[in-house]
Design a protein around this nucleic acid. Sequence first.
DNA 1: AGCTTATACAATCAAGCACTAATACGTTGC
DNA 2: GCAACGTATTAGTGCTTGATTGTATAAGCT
Lengths: 109, 109
Amino acid sequence: MDASDACCAPPGNVDSDAMATDLQVLSAMGNDTRYELLRRIANADDGVCVCDLEATVGVSQSAVSQALSRLYTAGLVTRRKEGSWRYYEPTETTEVLLETLDDLRGNHE
Amino acid sequence: MDASDACCAPPGNVDSDAMATDLQVLSAMGNDTRYELLRRIANADDGVCVCDLEATVGVSQSAVSQALSRLYTAGLVTRRKEGSWRYYEPTETTEVLLETLDDLRGNHE
DNA sequence: AGCTTATACAATCAAGCACTAATACGTTGC
DNA sequence: GCAACGTATTAGTGCTTGATTGTATAAGCT
């Protein structure tokens, strides 16, 4: 209560479960390769397979596979197997976040 | 045109300016220390100074300062100097993104 | 069955990152 | 002026992480 030697009130605590979840999402998206993969997956509405993604981002097939796995673990994409191909689609989390980022870039006051 | 050997349509391009901006935001938030600092700054409405933040997250003053600088560069906090103290406040980007993350965690369908 | 294609997994390596410690800058008060 | 405090910056270091290469699995094709 003595404000004479305190510069401000100490801030409250942070929910650690929420923090872990958010960090997984943010760190998964906050990488060059994975962000671009995510954008491409989100742009194409009817599912994208690994073979095409490999060509568009400039890394090896293995790197794409690893990146997609991490996006999947973070709950940012779903994967569905069809024949010999694997199709990836965005989750709602991805769509909402990308849209939010677009809005924030547009409405820069 | 020949769909027999194509698994799917190649996805469209990604705006590279938008990508750079988003990546700066996402990678800045996608770190343990910086995320926690950001949450604490966002929770306290009337500005937080470094001295209090240092006590709450378990790293040195230097680390806190560096983390805050990066958050500032990414446009996630504003800083204002008042006497010998430096007060940090969240930007709209921060508030919108954290709120979006909260919503996404809540509305898990 | 064997070969090819599509994808995932494992091991290794290099680059980037986040920390600590030390130093420098700026403000306040004696 | 100088000392003490709050914050920023710099230099150095260990750890994390993302990529490559190579191998493994699994499904089609002949």
